[in-house]
Every structure is written in C-alpha cells, then in structure tokens.
C-alpha cells in the first residue's frame, strides 16, 4: 500500500522533531514533509504538481506572523479550488486545548478535524475515514 503524502506545518524545531519521531515510532504510513511557517508552506504547496500535492496537511495554530487560522484563510483563497487540492484533507494539530479555538478552527472552511498533539495512530485511523469520504 502506498504511503500518504503528508505536510506538517509547525514553527517549533522541537515540535517538528517530535512529530517526525512519532510518525516513525507509531509506524504511520506517511511520506511527510515538515515546514516551519505558513508562508513557506504556501510557497511549497503552490509549487507542487497534482502528483505531489499532499493528501493530508497538519497545521499548528500558535505560530508567529502567520498563525494557523491565517494560513487556512490563505490556503482557501489560493489553493483550495485548484484541481490538485481536491482530495486534500486539512486539520489542526496543536497543543491548544481551548474550546474557543477549537470551535473557531472547526468552523473554518475545508477544515476536517482538530487534533491535540502528539500525532498518533488513533489520529490516523480517525483521519482515514475522512480521506475515504473525500
């Protein structure tokens, strides 16, 4: 079975390191890319062909300059309507536990889910059903 193409957007080195280790240790079927900011992520996504475009994007909320919400707004404006993005699932992966943030996050267009760190097999299982529905 082919691995999923996955993008993690998180500003902190440590969080990216831990995401990487968790993906490996939980044996998640991901070909993952780790990017440090929303701006870079947008640039990266704009550069991707339909072939390479990630199927899953995990977004941290609390990031400097362009936070997770800003990123999703930009993504919706620039990318969501392109054919290459049609099968992509967006979700937040954050350490935030605030109800108001969760509510705001889930209210956004094209957001499928809101998960708390760290990334686990349980999260992937939950995501799979959403992927199949796409």
């Amino acid at each position: 079975m082919k691995n999923y193409k996955v993008l993690f957007i998180d500003d902190r080195e440590m969080d990216n390191l831990l995401n990487r280790l968790m993906v490996r240790e939980e044996q998640l079927p991901f070909d993952a890319t780790y990017i440090n900011s929303g701006e870079e992520a947008l640039e990266f996504l704009n550069d991707q062909t339909e072939e390479d475009f990630p199927q899953i994007i995990f977004i941290d909320i609390n990031m400097p300059v362009m936070n997770g919400f800003d990123f999703v707004d930009e993504y919706n404006a620039q990318l969501a309507n392109q054919p290459k993005a049609i099968n992509t699932v967006l979700c937040f992966l954050t350490s935030s536990s605030s109800d108001s943030e969760k509510e705001r996050a889930l209210g956004m267009q094209n957001i499928s889910a809101f998960y708390n760190k760290p990334i686990t097999m349980a999260i992937f299982v939950d995501l799979q059903s959403r992927l199949n529905n796409k």
Partner: peptide, 9 residues
C-alpha cells in the same frame, strides 16, 4: 497572539 519571529520563541 502575534509573534514576529519563528525560531525558538
């Protein structure tokens, strides 16, 4: 809730 640098803050 704005930060203006990305590294180690």
């Amino acid at each position: 809730f704005r930060r203006f640098a990305s590294e180690g803050i």
